[in-house]
């Protein structure tokens, strides 16, 4: 057994550390471009009647989803510290004093509800959500009237051709909200010494 494993030395020739010993510092930008980004088809309507008359989703779906969105809007809408700040994002005359919308928005400014967004197919499982105008004056110049919207957390939604079309193909991440803090809880539950848990062993 011996010869196949034998080498002259059984240990590393050199061991050096770049970070710990402070020998090197690197500021690196991790890749932001993501070629595998997923996309999906969504529908955008100013209200339930437009959704019903388009007849892509059922009338029941259109009305149920709109009711969900109306209920979510007061708390879901983004908040701004000043009117100019809100209008810079959502366009002149597209913002309201917060107190009108929700008690929690008192003293702040929120965009008006521009409509709602739902999945093109029920099996997408996409939660319906409120949408807001996104710099409408800029969109009008750049895209000749293409509808520019954003979601409550700033995801961009641009409809295909002109304000009358309701279809958009969007990055999934624009219409499905990210969440944080979903790792670590189980291990904290195993912390047996009254201090922090740890995962190594």
């Amino acid at each position: 057994m011996t010869p196949p494993f034998s080498k002259h030395r059984k240990r590393s020739a050199t061991v050096s550390l770049a970070l710990v010993a402070g020998a090197g510092t690197t500021a690196l930008v991790l890749g932001q471009v993501d070629p595998t980004q997923r996309e999906e088809d969504v529908l955008v309507y100013p209200g339930p009647d437009a959704c019903v008359s388009a007849a892509i989703r059922t009338e029941a779906d259109c009305r149920r989803d709109y009711a969900i969105v109306r209920q979510a809007y007061p708390e879901a809408a983004p908040r701004y510290g000043s009117l100019p700040e809100c209008e810079a994002h959502h366009g002149p005359a597209h913002c309201l004093t917060g107190a009108v919308v929700a008690a929690s928005a008192t003293g702040r400014f929120v965009p008006m509800l521009a409509g709602y967004l739902l999945g093109r197919r029920p099996d997408q499982g996409l939660p319906p959500q409120p949408i807001y105008h996104h710099r409408p004056e800029q969109a009008a110049h750049a895209h000749a009237g293409h509808g520019g919207y954003c979601t409550s957390w700033g995801g961009r939604v641009v409809t295909a051709s002109g304000g009358t079309s309701s279809s958009a193909r969007v990055a999934s991440s624009a219409v499905r909200q990210a969440s944080f803090g979903g790792f670590g809880r189980t291990g904290r539950g195993f912390s047996s010494h009254g201090s922090s848990g740890h995962g190594g062993g």
């Binding site: 990055a171 944080f180 979903g182 670590g184």
Partner: peptide, 9 residues
């Protein structure tokens, strides 16, 4: 660990 997020997609 707590800084790791999950995107909508």
């Amino acid at each position: 660990l707590a800084e790791i997020g999950l995107s909508g997609d």
